[in-house]
Each structure stands twice: as structure tokens, then as C-alpha cells.
Design a protein around this nucleic acid. Sequence first.
DNA 1: AAGCATGTTCGGGGTTCTCGAACATCTGCT
DNA 2: AGCAGATGTTCGAGAACCCCGAACATGCTT
Lengths: 121, 121
Amino acid sequence: MLGYPAAMASRTATELVHPARDHLRFTTVLAALGDPVRLAIVARLADAGPDGELACTTFALPVSKSTQSGHFKALREAGVIRQRDEGTRRLNRLRRDDLDARFPGLLDLAVPQGREIIAGW
Amino acid sequence: MLGYPAAMASRTATELVHPARDHLRFTTVLAALGDPVRLAIVARLADAGPDGELACTTFALPVSKSTQSGHFKALREAGVIRQRDEGTRRLNRLRRDDLDARFPGLLDLAVPQGREIIAGW
DNA sequence: AAGCATGTTCGGGGTTCTCGAACATCTGCT
DNA sequence: AGCAGATGTTCGAGAACCCCGAACATGCTT
């Protein structure tokens, strides 16, 4: 693949993977939420309001940049968050509508727990 | 987590590890439930009634014996199930009271999803 | 004592996490 | 134009977990 940007990730060019609402799997979502860092991310997004969008940097997470990147990717591929690129920032938004439709009550249960994790930092 | 005092696994002699209700961690429980095999186990135990106890063999899971053993251990160490030995059998019971007390609504949400997994087998 | 039933542990292969370091992309400033 | 800074992603290596079959341990039954 030498002709093309071998490193991939042309940011604006590549379309990000987002599973459709009907393809969300409960165990995958639970596994995604079953990590303190990711649950904290979800709680922050939930507190940002229905249409709140936050860049990755604004979370001040106690893990390295590359680890953050992996966590955001995990949440996106599980269908918990939606990401879109704007300039150099990758904006994150909670897929509350889809999650509430498929697993009603889950976020209401998880978000307070995520807030407690943040409070403990 | 980490192994216990050399374990030894004398079955009736060694006491099995069971985290107290106050020590249950939400993310740990979620991670435990975030696996199809383990979620199916939980659903079966829930359908066995409040005091239902089932031996590991009775689940007919589509994984090997050693893998089953690991899953039951994961559920126990996460505080989702309680295990006790009776003769050569290891009986499993869902810790519904503890889970309902700490994370109300979680099991009501997870159990139906576990039933669907079983139905798909 | 021998045999069987029930689980656990062990070693190896595959996938996932973690980090620092290097790379890629976009914005802004000179 | 050109270069520096901000923002994320990818890479390589080490640790941890999931999967399996094989071997082991324990208890019940004959």
C-alpha cells in the first residue's frame, strides 16, 4: 500500500465505524461500560446534555493519550458513543437515544456510577 | 485479581472467595456480565428462583469444562454468584439480594438479555 | 480398591489492555 | 510559504485474560 497514505487514518477521509442501533449487543455494551475510565467518559458525556459534544482532551483522564484513544475507540465500536471529526478535534457524543431504545434503564443506572468514579479522582 | 494463599483447592477445606456486599464494584460486575456465557449462567440462575442452586454441569454451555470453570470463578470473584461445595458438586446461587441492594434494576435488565442468548443456542 | 462423576489447574495460542515513542493531520503565527 | 503547536492515532513490547485439551484432585459408589 505504498501508493496511498500507508499510515491510514486520514481523519476526515476515513469514515468512522458506528454500529447501527439494531446491531448493538448487550454484552458488548456491558463490556464497554465495565471499565472505570470508559464509564467516567460516559458520565461526562451524559452530563454534557442531550446534544453535548466533547473533544477527547476535555476529559482529563488519568491514563495516557494512547490509552485514551483505545478507550474512545472501544466505546465507539460498541455503539455507546458517536464520533465525528471537526478540524483536528474528534468530538464525542453519547448515543443516548439508541441505548435507551435498546436497553432502557441502563444509562440511568450507569451514569451515576460513572459520576462516583470521577468524584474519586 | 491475584491468586489466594496457594489456593490448594481442597474443595471442602478451602473457603471460597466471596466479596462482601459493600465491596462490590459496578465496573467489575458489568465486566462479569459482559460475556454471553456468563450472562446466560446468570439468567439460568435467576430462573431457578430466589434460593435456586444449580451445579455447574446443569447449564449445558457451549464451551469446554475448563472454560466453564473460569467463567464461574469470574462471576464469583465479581460477587455475582455464591458458590458452595456439596460433595463433589459445586452449587451456584445468584446473589440477587446483594446486587439489588447495590445496583437496583441491573439484574432486571440483564436477565432477559441472558434469556435471549440461551434461546439463540 | 477400582471406577466414575464433578471440577480445577496447567501450558500454549489468540485477543485485549497498557505505556512511551513516533507519526499524521489541522490550525495559527510570523 | 513555512514552521511550530495542538490533537489524536499507530506501533512495539509486556501483562492479563479467554479458549482449548490434558492431566490432576476430590468425593461418591460399588
